[in-house]
Design a protein around this nucleic acid. Structure first.
Lengths: 257, 257
DNA sequence: CGAAGCGTTGAGTGCTTTCAATAGTTGTGG
DNA sequence: CCACAACTATTGAAAGCACTCAACGCTTCG
């Protein structure tokens, strides 16, 4: 609708810089950040406001989405009407790849704030992947990262006590923001306590209590969605057996064999 | 080493039938089950005994493995020396795809019993995928399924009480065996109670207690690794808000667009 | 201004864990 | 072939962590 109107260029550059499919929009660049082709024959950018759905569960899967700016929550719906949050997503991430095998979306994606999101027809992406080994590898790479991330989430849910889960979540958020050029110690959470609790497999009240506890310990200051980390090492010490906090630690190793 | 010696043809046929990459070995077949090419220029079959590693964490990732017969446990190692089981794998499944993004194995895979396992060089698989859209789609499909399965595992760990977790595990095992031509109600678990507990995020003792409880309820009979299900519907009623029990419910929808 | 949603804090309950003891099973070496 | 060790599995008792229930302020928005 109202795409290609006012665009926040610096933010977009950050989003495209970390985008798994930057080769699509910047085919000449090795790192995908030199040119500023805001409109592209392959991808179309679209704006979503807070609360708008990018896609819903059970809709036909035809399009892959890449976040350019903003943040997104993905979740699957359970039979009893409740939902299970599977992740929060930041600029550069791809949405919808889990639905390839069924042709229908396995989860819903909803904007947590104003977002610019690129849309790529999956059929087009598949044929482009066939023509271009680098794009194929980038696609496999993105899915591989998602699997690794999910395995870390499984470990978190299976092994860590509540304290370690929230600490791990905050460290992860911190490094994700840092990777995108924002402050690693002072940031705004775009999701509710309820969403965090859902992702971490805890009750809302537990999240509240832990935030208060962390504040008492002097690890951080928090006021509603605004978080300031004072002692990241202290937080890390709360996650003794959970090593890899950054899911993008090995990104962009696209050597084609 | 001792591959291509004595091969259990019926079992192999089952494994290849459900293999995500059956097109590699049976390129002419739509369903991948007519010919019996036991040795193939693309894949090499290899035998692993119980306790042997197919690969270990941090080893260079160069090969994708397809289970032809037997069962495999995958797990990641934590800093404190403990391990997190991420899954049990049966014939037809692919191992190692989560390691594409780092070029090093993110987890270890160990044979739970005697296994015949096919090895495909990933570089070769990538170039074959580029030449053949159907193979590329099969590869994306397999990874998509893995992500969906992981999301179900996350839901299980995040939301379900112990009773529902074990019930869900048994139902899943049952349908997996059934899909491969074995009994859905009478089967042998190749993993220890400890492995099950680890996968489900519970203590070993809890698994034992639940097996005893299920027996008292008349839902099943269990003697060490041998399980006989009497009341699958009864088990399903223990998992009220956890719908999809089969990860292969939508397999083989390989329409290329 | 009132309603709805979000967030915090307290008290009590309960599910699962940990600790502990026992028995069955497997594998190995004398 | 038996004995011993290591692993696997079961069951009981007690403790603890996180949940549910409940009440209350704060913010947002119509």
């Amino acid at each position: 609708m109202d795409n290609n109107t006012v665009i926040d260029l610096p933010s977009i550059r950050t989003g495209c810089k970390t985008c798994s499919l930057s080769r699509l929009c910047f085919p000449d660049s090795e790192t995908g950040q030199e040119k500023e082709t805001t409109d592209n024959p392959v991808t179309r950018s679209h704006k979503f406001e807070r609360g708008e759905y990018i896609f819903r569960v059970n809709e036909p899967f035809k399009t892959v989405y890449a976040i350019r700016t903003g943040s997104v929550k993905t979740y699957s719906s359970l039979e009893n009407g409740k939902e299970q949050v599977t992740g929060f997503h930041l600029p550069g991430e791809l949405l919808g790849l889990d639905s390839i095998s069924t042709n229908y979306h396995a989860e819903s994606a909803i904007a947590l704030e104003s977002c610019n999101i690129c849309e790529i027809a999956f059929a087009r992406l598949e044929s482009l992947s066939n023509e271009n080994p680098a794009i194929q590898h980038a696609l496999l790479n993105a899915m591989s990262e998602e699997i690794q991330h999910d395995h870390q989430q499984i470990t978190l849910l299976s092994r860590l006590p509540a304290e370690a889960r929230l600490a791990s979540f905050l460290i992860s958020a911190s490094s994700h923001f840092h990777e995108r050029g924002f402050s690693a110690t002072d940031f705004h959470l775009s999701m509710t306590r309820s969403d965090i609790a859902n992702l971490l497999g805890l009750a809302v009240e537990t999240i509240s209590r832990l935030f208060s506890l962390f504040q008492e310990k002097g690890l951080l200051a928090v006021e509603r969605r605004h978080v300031v980390l004072f002692d990241i090492d202290g937080l890390k010490q709360l996650t003794p057996d959970y090593c890899r906090h950054s899911r993008h630690a090995y990104m962009n190793q696209n050597k084609a064999s």
